[in-house]
Design a protein around this nucleic acid. Structure first.
Lengths: 195, 195, 195, 195
DNA sequence: CTTTAAGCGAGACGGTACGTCCCGTCTTCTT
DNA sequence: AAGAAGACGGGACGTACCGTCTCGCTTAAAG
């Protein structure tokens, strides 16, 4: 029963939303996260600052939505083996993090989220949630096949995978080892398999 | 035979150095990384801002040195098994990251390092170097025992371990799973062992 | 028909302007010109520094406007004699320079104006312009009465009068000879009269 | 009988004194009074800052001595007429003020002297004293010749002359009217003559 | 002929002010 | 009511000087 607000007065212009999101992505790639100020975003988007603050609470939320909203759509991989599924999942993470705007935004974004108690609680829920969901499905099928136990810790593995990818892409910055996903998946898959 | 510079003029007062480092650690724990401004550090240390800038190029370098300089001294673990050595190594990482000042500083510090091309190259060299050295020694002994191959990728494993710990402590923020080191070590050790 | 600019955005608050000007006058009288920093002015006025810099380029312009804007309104004296007119004019200069804020500001203000090539050209135009205009009118009437020639050099006399007053008030600092205006006017009037 | 101090320890090197004075004059002409900092002077002179502070109390005293010490030597003019003597005296003032270092220093120097109660009292005594002495001698002879009364106010005339020259040279900055001395002397002489 | 004291170049020291940038809020007019 | 514009109070930035201090060294007079 989502009651939409009464909606009096002038409705929000959806073109502003798009212009802002576009400006954020451009600025992230051009000047980095720190220099992507709300004022600069608004100016680039041809929009007033209030129009930004009316839609987002601050820079972290704005950047997060601008950068990480196209990714929830990937299908859960189903290659028939745990290692294969993990490789596919990881490759998705790598691709997502490797986009110029995302790579530029990630470290600063995580820092801002970590610094705010309110935002910190949302990291798992909103930042890694889609990946976690897919990882859980992968584990479920692997457990059915008998490759792993049914109590394999999803969070531990997810943190491990995400942390490894983050360290490679966010902090080293070079175009990463193209085999990163496969090699990492192999180690983890072997590490959690039964026997 | 390192020839120290001729050292003309008044030498720098080591008490200033200590006072600054102490102020940084206090402020990190009290107000966090973002609010730990150079000006606040100088005021807390009873020191002029120039005295800070004379010794460090900026906040990232200052905080890094203030927080992560006591750690290079840990001995390389030698428990007789790969899993045991990894657990000990990881526990060191966890302990290091878990200190209040370190936990408060880590995400912002990594973001600032990642944003600066010059600093980014130093991350591996100075931030993870001691851990990498110890990990390599652990791998060497494990290879001699026949537990792993001699070509086991140190960097991949180090990123994986550090990333996992960082994600747990820096981003979740709660007092982490006390068994984190052991569980993670078990997975990785099994993942890289021969057979 | 001065067409004011389109005036988009929030207009500047005239109360800020008044608060700043008031703070400048208070600080000049209390701590002098050198210690009247922009930061102190802003703090005293309860205003951000940008609000000051948005209106004035720097301290000299700010102080000049704060101190010397009430004076353009004096009427041109017309006592019937050159000496009388000069006395009245000089008394106006003395009164203007003698105000606590003005006396405190004058030497430093002239120094800052003199040091900047751009500002230096404005001294005559904006600082002495009203006085020059009145002096020219006085000379014109005196020439019509036959007291002086029509080619009497206005600038020379103006510099002489202003310089004398400045030296007395700005540099000696004591409450000056109350007869200064009259005695100086007598000398100058006699010096430029025909015969 | 001024007893020179016992003079123990190493005597002051007179070459430092000369180097400092030379550096002040160079810097005044090159970068102006405001930018002629004690630190810059010391660096230019190849001298430590303390060596400057040991000899002078601060910038105003230093600059004053560096710029206005060669002038006390001019002889008192004696042309036979008041106007002639005044012209010669004024030309001396003009020449003194017109020197690049002096013209650059004057406004700021007067401002600093005026701002300090201690220094302010010295202005007449040390800054204008030589000129005042000569002017008094000129007046005495003119009174003996019957050109002026014996009660002609020396200070008033001196302020008037100095103020006019200062305003012309210090504030306008252009190379001044070469006839300034003569024209101004004519006006003043006529203004104070009997009849 | 050594002590002692001051001068000296260098530069670190605690402060203060600079002028700029960005924050998130507010106030105007326009749509 | 939303929007573009931009002013607002606040605070941090990194730099430049201030006038004092602390080094190691040099230079002379005093003991």
């Amino acid at each position: 029963m989502s009651s939409s607000p009464p909606s009096r007065g002038r409705p929000r212009d959806p073109r502003s939303h798009e212009a802002i999101v576009g400006a954020v992505n451009e600025l992230l790639a051009e000047v980095g996260y720190a220099a992507t100020s709300i004022g600069a975003v608004a100016a680039r988007a041809g929009v007033g600052k209030d129009t930004v603050y009316r839609r987002w609470r601050g820079k972290p939320e704005l950047v997060f939505e601008a950068v990480f909203t196209t990714t929830d759509l990937a299908p859960t991989p189903d290659t028939g083996t745990l290692a294969g599924d993990l490789t596919a999942l990881l490759q998705g993470l790598v691709d997502e993090f490797e986009a110029p705007a995302a790579a530029a935004a990630l470290p600063g974004l995580l820092a801002d989220f970590a610094a705010d108690p309110v935002l910190r609680t949302r990291i798992r829920d909103h930042f890694l949630a889609p990946s976690k969901q897919r990882l859980a499905a992968v584990f479920e099928r692997a457990a059915e096949r008998g490759e792993i136990g049914s109590d394999t810790p999803v969070d531990l593995v997810l943190d491990t995978l995400a942390g490894a990818v983050f360290f490679h892409i966010g902090l080293v910055g070079e175009s990463p080892d193209p085999q990163l996903a496969g090699r990492l998946a192999a180690v983890i898959a072997k590490g959690i398999e039964i026997r």
